[in-house]
Design a protein around this nucleic acid. Structure first.
Lengths: 151, 151
DNA sequence: CTGCGTGCAAAAGCTTTGCATTCAT
DNA sequence: ATGAATGCAAAGCTTTTGCACGCAG
């Protein structure tokens, strides 16, 4: 994502482009894993020295609203953020390296529509998170048992 | 769920059956919505007077491990618990009344297997949460806009 | 009896808020 | 110039821990 694109989208919503916001965005986008606000702060400080945790919280929320980053919900950290590669709500999380990978939906939307029809719900949004072990971690000898995975 | 079933499953895992545990379980199971620990405490106190918040936390975790209740992850409350109607990982949450409804998977497992094949991940678990508006809330005039839903 | 389970109080985290200052526009 | 954005400090919550006591098995 280029600065100008970010600047445009921010301005379109009445927000300003600050170095702090750029730093936070850069941190999340460079990372393959999801990050907690504290982790974003740590890495963000390397880019913008005086970055504060308050700003990180506020910025992550803003960027999330604007669709630049995506919030991830998992047992380990309910408030983690990951890059928003695509705008769909599904992704795969590796329990070994915490990498987050988006995947295309292959019929998920149809499935969701079907659910709506059967239950009478108007479905507004969905969250599909798969957790598992990625190929790299498998090679490194990490399997389900090594990670203490139950379910 | 009958007391005896609960007692059996608890004992099978080396745990004791206490009135506190029964109270917490009863509260979550009677409820159609998902509840935060604080809410469980409030309702639980009506069943077992001196119930404490610490116990609620510990009990919810235990019951969750044993599959009696299920933890729900959503923006509004990352640590909420709902009854575990079925043991699959998918459910629908109403944004109006917060009711949680499980639904059968109609091909979701196949979809997940396909994901695993395509990405090389060993998929260990999944979480599919649909959020929307249930039929009752629709009748009561609650639509997406009234609820301030964005995405 | 025995030791797991409980409840209280305190500690430890995490997140939000208030406010003066700085900075993007 | 002007108000949005920031960072600090403090407040507010939520969750966990330590410990003595009580109760299920």
């Amino acid at each position: 994502m280029r600065d100008t694109e970010m600047a445009q989208r921010l301005r379109a919503h009445g927000h300003k482009l600050t170095p702090q916001r750029l730093a936070v965005l850069q941190v999340v986008q460079e990372q393959n894993e999801h990050l907690t606000p504290a982790q974003v702060l740590e890495k963000g400080c390397r880019i913008y020295r005086s970055l504060g945790l308050t700003t990180v919280y506020r910025t992550l929320e803003l960027l999330s609203d604007l669709g630049f980053v995506r919030r991830v919900h998992l047992k380990e950290g309910c408030r983690a953020y990951a890059q928003a590669q695509e705008t769909n709500g599904h992704h795969l999380v590796c329990q070994g390296c915490h990498r987050v990978v988006d995947f295309p939906c292959f019929g998920l939307n149809e499935l969701i529509e079907e659910m709506g029809r059967r239950t009478g719900f108007i479905v507004e949004s969905h969250l599909l998170e798969l957790a598992g072990v990625c190929p790299t971690c498998q090679e490194n000898g990490l399997g389900p048992s090594e990670l203490g995975i139950e379910t």
